[in-house]
């Protein structure tokens, strides 16, 4: 087995929100490493800081204190533009609420990240069609998100996350808004992706059954990792 390489590393990360007089610490000194090729799930009760942690991992947010390293580079040293570029290239997001753009069709939604990476028109079309077939939505290419079921929308979102062949997929409760059957098929798909393409996956969930699918589980409580399972 080859030596695992660390893709993302969070070191003593704090996130503090100031609400008037009060200070809310969403994260209090979080330490976490994500290895290349692993399937990690982060569990924890509501309000424990899972989404906040996920945003840190995905460079969508900057810590109040502490460091985030992306392939060894401290993201604090990167400009906003660089960060966006890296995000677009290396990280694919799957959100709990799908977050598709409603004015665009399924296919256009998938093509969108490729625009910012300078793919040619032809490449965008080919890739989007390939991905839509992969998530079993070949027949629904020109449908708008509001013409699709929740499960179908989440599959479009997955296809979008895969559009630029990212090395990491970040999924924040990908099945949170789905019934157990469609949720199950989304999980199967992620597992297949991990197995067949070796994509690194970080998934947030508060559901034990869903989280079980991962290789490794971290447990979050009050903004800190509390114990390791498995």
């Amino acid at each position: 087995m080859k030596k695992a390489k660390t893709i993302i590393k969070l070191k003593d990360v704090w996130k503090t929100y100031t609400m008037g007089e009060n200070q809310v610490h969403a994260l209090r000194g979080l330490d976490l490493e994500v290895q290349e090729g692993e399937f990690l799930s982060i569990m924890g009760p509501s309000g424990s800081g899972k989404s906040t942690a996920m945003n840190m991992i995905g460079c969508l947010d900057i810590p109040s204190k502490g460091q985030v390293y992306l392939e060894g580079t401290n993201i604090a040293d990167l400009s906003e533009s660089d960060l966006a570029q890296i995000r677009g290239q290396k990280i694919g997001f799957i959100f709990q609420k799908f977050n598709l753009i409603n004015t665009l069709t399924a296919k256009e939604n998938i093509m969108l990240p490729m625009i910012f990476q300078g793919y040619t028109e032809q490449e965008r079309h080919d890739q989007a069609e390939k991905l839509l077939k992969l998530v079993d939505l070949g027949e629904r290419m020109d449908h708008r998100p509001n013409e699709l079921s929740g499960g179908q929308q989440q599959r479009v979102a997955i296809a979008r996350a895969l559009a630029v062949d990212p090395s990491v997929i970040l999924a924040d409760e990908p099945t949170g808004n789905l019934d157990s059957k469609t949720g199950g098929s989304v999980m199967d798909f992620l597992k297949k992706l991990h197995k067949e393409k070796g994509t690194t996956i970080v998934m947030v969930s508060h559901d034990q059954h869903v989280a079980k699918h991962a290789d490794r589980m971290e447990f979050l409580r009050d903004g800190q990792i509390v114990k390791k399972i498995k």
Binding site: L60, S81, A84, R87
Partner: peptide, 16 residues
């Protein structure tokens, strides 16, 4: 706002 957030999450830079 949300659309802008999505655009940024999937790689749109400020200038985009």
């Amino acid at each position: 706002r949300k659309e802008i957030g999505i655009l940024k999450a999937i790689g749109a830079r400020n200038e985009d």
